[in-house]
Computed example of a mutant assay.
Amino acid sequence: MSHTAQIPSHRKPRSNASKLSLRAGVAGGVLSTIAVAGAAAPAFADPVTQTMEMPTLTSGLSASLTESAEATRQAALDLELQAQEDAAAAKAEVAAKKAKAEADRKAEAKEKAEAKERADAAKERASREAPRTSLSANSSAADSSVGASSNSSSSSSATGSAATVVAFLKAQVGDAYVMGGTGPNSWDCSGLVQAAFRTVGVDLPRVSQDQSTAGTQVGTSNLQIGDILYWGGAGSAYHTGVYIGDGQYLDAANPSKGVVIQDLSGYPADGAVRVL
């Protein structure tokens, strides 16, 4: 084979190189087109991205604003509640101070009234002590005058005690009548009689019914000083007093009269007992 005959086969590679170049050019063109398209793509994608994210941003902002408003409202409620509590506490404090001042005023007034009452009672007791002392000093003379009217030595001894009983009773004139009272400033009828005879060592029963049978029954026409008078039946009497002579008796009469001296003719007794 001649040298020139080898030329065609020697040129084949060039043909392939041209094809490769063409293919490369085409490929480069395609890639360039893709590159251009890729470069241009973000310009169209941006609006889509922004449009999709806007609701998310708006929702978060709305929630934040809602939370802020709720916190503000709660803070306002808390302040209002605190103000109400402070006002109520101040009002309660003022009321407590007024109540305490009123209680102090009443307590002071009560203390003054009690002090005055005690002073009056002490003055009254002092005024009563003087006649009692005087009566005790003159008891011997009274015993002698009463004993002169007695019929025996035994009755003379009884009249001495009777004078003491009468002296005690007269010292209580003006005291109040109080049901169940046993002194020293208020009495009922049997409480006064019992206390009077206790001064001479005679222990009488407490109630009128029993006092009406405590001694020797005597007629109301034969009375002696110191005899116990009763109204009602013996053993069922409802009132008692003591005969003090000269047609008079002394008793704790009733709430309107208190302890008084009365005429027997105005309220005759139903019976009498003698214990001295």
Rank of each mutant, 00 (worst) to 15 (best):
F168E: 02
M179A: 14
G233N: 03
S161Y: 05
T159M: 13
A176E: 14
D251R: 10
A163L: 02
T220D: 08
P184H: 12
S157V: 14
A163I: 09
G160C: 00
G219T: 07
V242W: 15
G258C: 08
I225Y: 00
T240C: 04
A167C: 03
V193L: 05
Q194E: 03
Y249E: 13
L250M: 08
S186Y: 02
S186M: 11
Q194S: 14
L250F: 04
T213N: 01
G235S: 05
G226R: 09
S236K: 04
R206D: 00
G180Q: 07
G258R: 02
Q209F: 00
G201D: 02
G174Q: 11
T220L: 07
K257Y: 05
A196F: 10
R198M: 05
Y177A: 09
W231L: 07
V200F: 06
I228Y: 12
G241C: 06
N222K: 12
S186F: 00
Y243K: 09
G215Y: 06
Q211V: 05
G245D: 07
G219M: 03
L169I: 13
T159I: 01
L204D: 05
Q224D: 01
Y230V: 04
A253Q: 14
G247Y: 10
D203K: 14
T216G: 02
V200K: 13
Q217Y: 11
D251C: 12
M179Y: 15
G235M: 08
W187E: 02
A196Q: 05
K257W: 00
S212H: 08
A163G: 13
V207R: 02
L223I: 03
S208D: 10
A176N: 12
G247H: 07
S236I: 04
G247E: 09
